[in-house]
Design a protein around this nucleic acid. Structure first.
Length: 569
RNA sequence: GGGCCUGUAGCUCAGUUGGUUAGAGCAGAGCGCUCAUAACGCUUUGGUCGCAGGUUCGAGUCCUGCCGGGCCUACCA
């Protein structure tokens, strides 16, 4: 059996994510996971919250909570939203889990043994008022170059010049505004990625068929300037994975934690261990997904992420895996996405601009969002959410093409033959033509799904839905019924059989509607191998029910109302 | 500054290794149908493929330059 391991980039813990975050990794990975399961792969689909780092601590402080309490609460919020959007994770973990602590420390220990960790003493800005070290961008001051008053320690937004925090005139904490800052000497661990540069370069260069977005970002980092730089993997923070060398203390590193970008990807593995523990499995059950010497050699591993995550997944994490030199499973394919913009600009949490996951579910069911977002996923370039486009996609594709098809044929059957599949008549050339058309589209759909071409898959699916309406229009069972009820019955029987077929094929995109269709037609859904065979599912006498309206249309008034509600300030 | 991506019909996008009349959905127009969520079907109007050169028998596709949009640039994650 084909085994597929799928991970979605980890959403950061500090708040509810917007639709752009959702469509950039979780939603397309869910479609792929559902597809793989449907065609019979053994699937492990993993996601988790990314809980460490300065922003999490600040968000907790703002919420008046301890960081652990805050993360626990926000994890549950995000887990609930994931369920709301029907994200079918096998496990939705937490990067703060004991499993991740252990594994992260283990990897650091292995990397140290293999000479890939370097201790570096460096100068960092410490804020006495805030009681913490400040990352560069949390220090603000006057730009020495252009005089801009609110330049950040890493770069001046006004003149775009790269800065060092010590360059700033009258530096202050961006958190408290305090000017009681001092420069302290502190020791950190660096991952010597530069030693693995040639290995990584060779690896990236030999990846066949990866998205250009993925490889070009990796190559840029590998070859820019002096090439791949070593990277600090520890921080002076309280919340995080304590720095240890495996299970041993690390001299001089007490009180420090690993940097979030070191431990976050390791959580993919740790979350699978969490899954095993949560389900009462032996460790061997997760190891067979991740350890190539323990059964993972035949696993196909696919990662989904937005383009901002690419450097970490093409370089840092592979460096960790390769550097550990320990039979860990390396990724086979990285599917990366561009950004979704909102109505001519960016989504903005602070400005309340755009739709966030919780708001979306308050407005409309998840299938509506899934369909539009997936059929407009930013695959080749950034794409844009507009209410007009959303309304059009929902009303035309879901309500008119699919929903109305189900509605018209089930209601017609009910009124003329009752709520069971009618007997009589035979199929002819028209039915064979439909079978041929569907088989051709099905082949395309399968190929695009396997290739993770999400937009093209959505277009294929829609085309398959449309075939039903074309057939009914041409066959016109309502006219034929007056002169030849038997012939009409055959058409109705054939058309009704399209519903379970559509339901099965639609599952990855709109799982709730697919289930509704399956239940209405009283069948278990299975992925069709061949349309001719699949369209024999419902036989004469099979009972069904007419489903409620599956997709309500979005009115112009409702659209306008939402457009102004989410425009931001 | 550097790097990458991108510019195709009013809108959103397809266009495989350069090969005959550049495609789809939506929007617009006309016709048809009446089973259905005023739904559906058929037909149809829109494009000197950002601009200017070049290579070639042949360029939306390759090369150069210019113009516009976006992203990244390593301590936000």
């Amino acid at each position: 059996m084909t085994r597929t391991l799928i991970t979605s980039a980890l959403p950061y813990i500090n708040g509810v994510k917007h639709l752009g975050n959702l469509v950039g990794s979780q939603l397309p990975s869910d479609v792929y996971a559902r597809y793989c399961r449907a065609i019979g792969h053994e699937v492990m689909y993993i996601c988790a919250t990314d809980e460490h780092g300065t922003p999490a601590e600040l968000a907790a402080k703002k919420a008046g909570q301890g960081v652990e309490e805050f993360c626990t609460q926000m994890h549950e919020v995000q887990a609930e939203l994931a369920r709301g959007f029907r994200l079918s994770f096998d496990h939705f973990g937490r990067s703060s889990s004991p499993q991740n602590h252990k594994l992260t420390q283990y990897f650091a220990g292995r990397l140290a043994e293999n000479g890939l960790i370097e201790e570096v003493s460096e100068k960092q800005v410490y804020s006495n008022t805030d009681g913490r070290y400040l990352p560069d961008r949390y220090i603000e001051g006057e730009c020495p170059n252009c005089g801009f008053a609110d330049a950040r320690g890493d770069q001046c937004e006004n003149c775009t010049k790269q800065l060092d925090p010590t360059d700033l005139i009258n530096p202050r904490s961006a958190i408290s505004g305090s000017t009681d800052l001092e420069v302290r000497e502190t020791k950190h661990l660096y991952l010597r990625q530069s030693k693995l540069r040639d290995t990584l370069d060779k690896w990236i260069s030999t990846r066949e068929g990866w998205p250009v977005l993925t490889t070009s970002i990796a190559k840029k980092w590998l070859h820019d300037g002096d090439g791949l730089q070593d990277r600090g993997i520890t921080r002076d923070l309280d919340w995080g994975v304590p720095v240890k060398r495996g299970t041993q203390e690390w001299d001089g590193m007490q009180g420090k934690v690993f940097y979030v970008w070191f431990d976050a990807p390791i959580e993919y593995i740790a979350a699978t261990a969490e899954w095993a523990e949560a389900n009462g499995h032996e460790p061997a059950e997760w190891q067979r997904w991740w350890c190539t010497d323990k059964g993972a050699d035949d696993v196909n591993y696919v990662q989904f992420m937005g383009k901002d995550n690419v450097p970490f997944h093409t370089l840092s994490f592979p460096a960790t895996i390769m550097g550990a030199d320990d039979n860990w499973k390396l990724v086979d394919y990285i599917k990366s996405f561009n950004y979704l913009n909102y109505d001519g600009g960016q989504f903005s949490t602070s400005k309340g601009r755009g739709v966030f996951m919780n708001q979306a579910l308050d407005i409309l069911p998840s299938d509506y969002w899934r369909w539009w977002l997936l059929s407009n996923v930013p695959e080749s370039s950034d794409s844009e959410f507009t209410w007009e486009s959303f309304q059009s996609g929902v009303n035309k594709d879901l309500a008119d093409v699919l929903g109305n098809f189900v509605s018209r044929i089930t209601k017609f059957c009910r009124s003329k033959f009752g709520e069971e599949v009618p007997a009589g008549g035979v199929y002819g050339a028209a039915e064979q033509a439909v079978i041929d058309q569907i088989n051709a589209r099905l082949a395309s759909y399968n190929a695009n799904m396997a290739a993770m071409e999400v937009r093209k898959s959505a277009a294929d699916l829609r085309a398959i839905w449309a075939i039903g309406n074309e057939y009914l229009q041409a066959a016109a069972p309502w006219s034929l019924f007056k002169t030849d009820p038997e012939a009409s019955a055959a058409i109705v029987r054939f058309a009704l059989n399209l519903i379970p077929l559509y339901a099965a094929l639609s599952q990855p995109f709109i799982p709730d509607a697919a289930q509704t269709m399956g239940e209405a037609m009283n069948v278990d859904l299975s992925w069709p191998q061949d349309a001719a065979e699949a369209l024999q599912t419902l036989t004469a006498g099979h009972s069904f029910s007419v489903p409620e309206v599956m997709f309500a249309k979005i009115s112009d008034d409702a659209r306008d109302e939402m457009e102004s509600r989410f425009a931001g300030v």
